[in-house]
Design a protein around this nucleic acid. Structure first.
Lengths: 195, 195
DNA sequence: ACCTGAACACCGTTCAAGT
DNA sequence: ACCTGAACACCGTTCAAGT
């Protein structure tokens, strides 16, 4: 049934792919949101098993988050949904459980891990949505930003001018790896929420 | 011109509000994306000035990021755009400059600040998009999640079961404040990117 | 020359009407 | 009883035709 979704995943597209009319899907799903949620959960099935069983917890956690990000990255429409709704379903739950387990292994308290989980999942999801818009547009925006930075009036924007090209340095992969390190360092350093 | 946008901000809606046909906006904007970008930049105008001029850099930075988040929070359609495109325009630039300045004040290296800027802006943007879907849906999703956590099979999901209610604890404001602390602690702790 | 809105190609969702 | 697709209410974008 819900096998392919690399392009835009819409009700009508799936309906016509199934040789039926729109509205027929509403027997199986309540909503477009629900449709996306069900697809995401099936896409997530192989993720928890793919994480290495040995090695430092931190490396395993980063591998898990990268895999999660990769899934969303290839399905931007689904990523958009994952951002607005807490993913539910057995496989999403398995991913969450694995993350909590690895954080516990790293000595993170349950309270911090509970809130950290959301933060850790939010990053790859947001990145996937960010890259969702066509790549050409992204490159164009980058070029525009580069031009703006280069031209930035040092009097009005002293810090932008000083930092300069560093703002544009690095590709997606190295930035993601760095971001996971920031998040994990932050989670290890932060004090427990006083909820 | 572009004054109100608390609901859904669409080409057609603005066009009819301006007593003209759709397509007429294309004289002023290239795209829906461009429209949103221009609106965001005007919304951001008062933000940099609103940050307190005295006090610890960290508190001022958190105040700035909160203000940025508040703007996006009241305009979810715009937030969606801000997630997919690097905000451009003079006021976005001023916000970026202020953040870089505060990080420098905190002793963060330019290299780290450059990458940290993106990460710091990503969080409030993603949260704004997340809250974009109608509040009732969010509450429903929460209830569903609560049910799932409560019912979680401790054999299959041992960590979810153990952490339990902590996953659902805290409101948006306290979670956001905590997340900013994680990000800042992480940025202060992380090693410089080896770009 | 410049603005415009009809037209095109899409959406999600509902619900009367068929099987 | 159950599935369906015509119909409704929206979108963004283009471009021929008017001013």
């Amino acid at each position: 049934m819900r096998e392919e979704g690399l392009g835009k995943v819409t009700m009508r597209r799936i309906a016509t792919a199934l040789d039926t009319g729109p509205g027929s899907l509403y027997v199986y799903v309540r909503d477009t949101e629900d449709l996306h949620a069900q697809i995401l959960d099936t896409l997530l099935a192989p993720v928890p098993a793919g994480v290495p069983k040995t090695g430092p917890w931190r490396d395993r956690l980063k591998a898990l988050l990268s895999d999660y990000g990769r899934v969303l990255h290839t399905h931007p429409t689904i990523a958009r949904m994952a951002l607005s709704t807490q993913p539910s379903g057995p496989n999403s739950m398995a991913v969450a459980d694995a993350i909590l387990g690895l954080l516990a292994e790293g000595g993170v308290s349950d309270q911090v891990a509970a809130w950290g989980l959301d933060l850790l999942l939010l990053y790859p999801t947001a990145i996937a949505v960010e890259h969702g818009s066509s790549t050409s547009l992204k490159a164009e925006g980058m070029a525009e930003l580069a031009a703006q930075v280069a031209v930035a009036d040092p009097a009005r924007y002293p810090n932008v001018a000083r930092v300069g090209d560093a703002l544009l340095s690095g590709d997606g992969a190295s930035r993601s790896a760095w971001a996971f390190d920031v998040l994990l360092d932050g989670i290890l350093a932060v004090r427990s929420p006083s909820a």
